[in-house]
Design a binder for these strands. Structure first.
Lengths: 108, 108
DNA sequence: AAATAAGTTTCAAAATATAGAAACTTTGTT
DNA sequence: AACAAAGTTTCTATATTTTGAAACTTATTT
């Protein structure tokens, strides 16, 4: 899997600007387009929010820190199974929504 | 930065404005907890919404109908890559959101 | 009922993800 | 600078997904 380089902002920046200063709410919520690279960044963000090292998260998930590193950097196209294991370990609630726009219906 | 400012307006707001109010005929939206089986059902739902057979969707994605069948029935833990290919072929907008509840912070 | 279309399952092969371990690099601390 | 902690990369092995092809089952149509 190729890494897509769209990075151009720090997550901390983004959170402060668009979501609100850390610590103000009793929860943090993020919504993104589902993309491999964004998923990786979300894992990293959530881990840091929990004040965990990659090694600690690895222990919670049951894998080594190297694997966490790979997931955070989107080194490969993770399976849903893996994604869910990680977010569960982070006690993160993860939802997805699908929108079908009718205007696209003309597929031929 | 502007392009990545997904959170500056809520998605719901944007859709209401540019695509149509929820529940109107212009769009269909579904939100679920991210789970393998639900993903499979969503693929099926979206495909049927598009009036496509598994074979037709397979052609759009570039795989055989058997693979679509397996994905819809969650026969295995698909990779993000595959999921994205399918929803893209269906011209479906797919977002995910992650919620971190502070009360869970006390991991240790 | 017969024929066709749509969907499912099985088999085998190829591609990719996951895993542990260790070396390596970067970052932070004293 | 020296040291420790955190994160990354590489190597190798194993497990799983993806794939095509064909056989099979279930629905639909004539």
């Amino acid at each position: 899997m190729a890494k897509t380089a769209i990075k151009s902002y720090s997550l901390a920046e983004m959170k402060d600007k668009y979501i609100g200063k850390k610590g103000t709410a009793d929860r943090d919520e993020y919504e993104y387009e589902l993309r491999m690279d964004v998923l990786g960044r979300m894992i990293k963000t959530a881990r840091q929010e929990r004040n965990l090292t990659q090694e600690q998260l690895g222990q919670l998930v049951g894998v080594q820190k190297a694997q966490i590193s790979k997931l955070e950097s989107s080194a490969n196209s993770a399976t849903i199974d893996t994604i869910l294991k990680v977010f569960k370990a982070l006690k993160a609630d993860i939802h997805f929504n699908v929108t079908l726009e009718k205007k696209h219906l003309q597929l031929v």
